[in-house]
Every structure is written in C-alpha cells, then in structure tokens.
Amino acid sequence: MNSISKYFSDLFKGISSLWAGMRVTGKYFVSPGQIVTQQYPENRATLKMEPRFKGEIIMPHDENNQHACTGCGICEINCPNGSIEIITDRVPNADGKLERVIDKHIFHLSMCTFCGLCVKTCPSDALAFGQEFEHAVFDRHKLTKVLNQPGSSLKKEAKK
C-alpha cells in the first residue's frame, strides 16, 4: 500500500516539476518580444561591432594616403607570436640624408592572438584595431596582409 501511494506521489511530483519548467518556456513561447536571437547572416547590414572590437589590425591612412608608421619595429619586438614583420628601406630625403621608411608592414592574421600589445606600445599610434570579423578564406595565404597601402608615405607631422 505504501509503495502505491509513493508511486502516485512521485508521479504528481514529477508532473508538477515538469509543469514548473514548462511554464518558463511557455512564457517565452507566447511573448516573442523577449526572444533575443539574432538572425546573423541576414542582419549583416545592420550589425555594428563595438568601436573597441579587436577584429584585425589595421594601419589607418588619411586622405593623402599617408600613415604614421616610422618603421621603428617596436610592434615587431612586442608581438609574442611573430605575427608582425616589417621590411624597411632607406631612401634619401630632401636634405640628401638617408632616411628609414617602411617598405612593407606585413601582418599575419593567422598567427595573431589579439593581445593588443602592438597597438598599445606603438609610439606614433600608427596601428589600430579594425572591426572586420569575417576572416574565413579558402587559402591561408590570404591571411597574410600588407598593412601599408601601395604608394603611401609617412605623415610629416608624425615624424617629430
């Protein structure tokens, strides 16, 4: 007799606990306004990342195709993974003296861990984080990027 009453009490306890959970899910079922799911590939046009988002490393250029990188190599030294490579060149300036300019600022996105040390330690604020986050490509060589645009030059005021 005792086992039968235990069987039924367990049964009702089970149904009531199930009902408690179902009430929560049912509440969201009848009020779709509380659903927070984002329809990702469809909402690309409106999807905005935070301004501080670390998507990739970029070198901002101004309207005259000028950047602030002097090629000092501090970012290269500070990078823990060797994802930055700087190839510098020496060209004569107006006074005829040889001056260091960057030829290529190479960034290996595939090795980067986004620790932010390069951006933080850059003395002339030449690097920044970009908001781009869709990095999937079919060929991994496409993940090696040259940050300085072709034909770009050093900002004159950044030199001082």
């Binding site: 935070e50 501080r52 988002f53 861990t113 986004f114 933080k120």
Partner: peptide, 14 residues
C-alpha cells in the same frame, strides 16, 4: 566586448 574588444580571451590586465 564593449570594454576590452573581445569576448572570451581578453588580455585586459597588464
């Protein structure tokens, strides 16, 4: 993400 720019691995301390 708003404060450090990353969601999981945010090397925010130095």
């Amino acid at each position: 993400e708003e404060s450090f720019g990353s969601r999981l691995l945010h090397s925010f301390n130095t």
